[in-house]
């Protein structure tokens, strides 16, 4: 929600930090012969020019990151830009490559926490849900757990209609009700100690082992790793009872607790 209050004082905030998830294609380099890359890219782009036009791309160096492998980042960048591809970062490079990349204005992108038993992804497309977190500037809404290395978020107040909560890299626990018109997102599990009336999306970065737990299933939508069900279908299986929802072979299983 954009702030439309008139900004007149020094303390009026000029920005806010937000998390975001974006769908990005990666180009995984299989060698360092840039002239050859140039020609081969042209051929590929010709197949679907619109798809590639001004596309943001991540340069994946996993296959060429052995120590000592040299890559001319400046030249690479020029090649990509000349074809209207916009390099937005690199991943899986070795230390030297990372240094060079940063010198050329390319950030190092990390992938989410390692996925355990996912099938190897073919075209290096990391598909993620685009999720925007509404600024919950009242800290009384949640208490951060101090568990070492845990990114679990604990929300202690009811989640109101229109609010979106995203537990990045961990689980989400809500002690209270989740209203219709609100959204819970987590990379891991979602636990609601109360009625779940809004939308709950667990495993948003692809973790198929994520699960959803709630004390009363009244959700508008539930999803695990992109596999979803809406209330009309949920109602036929279980409704208004405590449940545990998991994903098995691509199908959602709803079990009474």
């Amino acid at each position: 929600m954009q702030s439309d209050l008139c900004l007149l004082t020094e303390t009026t905030p000029m920005f806010q930090l937000k998390g975001g998830l974006y769908t990005l294609s990666s180009i995984q380099l299989l060698g360092t012969q840039l002239a050859l890359l140039d020609k081969q890219l042209d051929a590929k782009i010709e197949q679907a020019p619109k798809f590639f036009h001004n596309a943001p791309v991540v340069v994946d160096l996993q296959k060429i990151n052995q120590p000592g492998t040299y890559l001319n980042f400046k030249q690479l960048k020029e090649i990509l830009i000349s074809k209207h591809l916009i390099p937005v970062g690199i991943k899986s490079g070795n230390a030297d490559q990372q240094r060079e990349a940063i010198a050329c204005g390319l950030p190092i992108l990390q992938e989410g926490p390692p996925k355990k038993s996912n099938a190897p992804e073919p075209a290096n497309q990391s598909s993620t849900h685009s999720a925007k977190e509404e600024p919950n500037s009242s800290p009384s809404l949640e208490t951060e757990t101090d568990v070492q290395g845990s990114n679990t978020r604990v929300i202690t107040e009811p989640v109101r209609s229109g609010q979106q909560i995203y537990a990045r890299g961990g689980d989400l626990i809500v002690l209270g009700s989740v209203s219709q018109g609100s959204e819970l997102l987590a990379d891991g599990h979602i636990h609601v100690y109360g009625p779940l009336r809004g939308r709950a999306l667990a495993g948003v970065t692809g973790d198929t082992h994520a699960q959803i737990f709630c004390q009363s299933l009244e959700a508008e939508l539930i999803s695990i790793a992109g596999h979803y069900k809406m209330s009309e279908d949920i109602e036929k299986i279980a409704w208004l009872i405590p449940v545990n929802i998991s994903l098995d072979k691509g199908r959602l299983h709803i079990r009474e607790l």
Binding site: S137, S161, Q163
Partner: peptide, 23 residues
């Protein structure tokens, strides 16, 4: 009721009291 729920959320996050961590 849904709109009221929404406005309660707004009260909890867009008021001066919420900015000052007051109830």
């Amino acid at each position: 009721v849904r709109d009221s729920d929404r406005i309660i959320g707004v009260l909890n996050s867009r008021s001066r009291k919420s900015e000052q961590n007051q109830e």
